[in-house]
């Protein structure tokens, strides 16, 4: 067994430097690495490029790193829930690259699968296509999109073991498994760190080979962005 366990988020992110590129898992506030985000805010590392589907909300998730102006550039598909983000973007303080969600996912996947690029029809004929190679396959046009190149991937899982095997829960899976595969160094924070051997090999979503550091996070808030319910009748 190769032991990947580190003590906590501060240790896990200790060598992240100014100007580096980070992937952060999650969709909205669902399945985000809360502990590592807090640690990044405490560390104060800056000029970061963050690849994440969304940018959090004003006072939670990546929104916390925007407030402290630690992010130089965001690469996301949708940022509608964050007023501070929109303000920094419209005023030119923050660089942003908005890309289609499937393109974002597949550029992560390509990196994790060791492929330099992919072709996708998303964005053909739109401003997303500007400056990109277009190739025709079987009468349909596709854009050449490159695999992401991230220094670190930071993901959140439900359960993990010391060798880095991960299991995600429900829709908090989202971008986490593909980002876990894509980082040069992958940090996983988990709700429950279990003994090696406890996880059923058939149920593992991310094999430990992709994970370099793992720790059990604490005080998960798991904030709900849109609480929608139906009455008990």
């Amino acid at each position: 067994m190769i032991n990947k366990v580190v003590k906590n988020a501060d240790v896990a992110i200790a060598d992240i430097k100014d100007g580096q590129t980070l992937m952060l898992g999650g969709f909205g506030l669902c399945g985000i690495p809360e502990n590592c985000i807090n640690a990044l805010v405490s560390k104060g590392v800056k000029e970061l490029t963050c690849i994440s589907n969304n940018a959090g909300v004003d006072d939670f998730g990546i929104g916390l790193m925007l407030k402290t102006r630690q992010v130089k550039k965001m690469i996301s598909s949708y940022v509608g829930e964050n007023a501070e983000f929109e303000r920094q973007l419209l005023s030119g303080e923050l660089e942003v690259e908005l890309i289609p969600q499937g393109t974002l996912a597949t550029r992560c996947m390509a990196a994790g699968y060791g492929m330099p690029a992919i072709f996708t029809p998303a964005g053909v004929g739109t401003e997303v296509a500007e400056g990109k190679e277009v190739r025709n396959f079987n009468g349909k046009e596709y854009l050449l999109e490159y695999a992401f190149d991230a220094d670190f991937a930071i993901v959140k899982a439900w359960k993990g073991d010391a060798s880095g095997n991960l299991i995600f829960r429900s829709t908090s899976r989202n971008f986490n498994p593909i980002m876990a595969m894509a980082g040069k160094i992958t940090i996983a924070e988990v709700e429950e760190l279990v003994e090696v051997g406890e996880l059923d090999p058939d149920q593992i979503h991310t094999p430990g080979v992709f994970v370099h550091r793992i720790f059990q996070g604490e005080h998960y808030e798991k904030r709900i962005e849109q609480r929608t319910v139906r009455p008990k009748s």
Partner: peptide, 14 residues
């Protein structure tokens, strides 16, 4: 308004 395309571009392209 700069909220982004989310999955819409992928959906309409395919």
């Amino acid at each position: 308004m700069v909220k982004g395309m989310g999955g819409a571009m992928d959906l309409v392209a395919s």
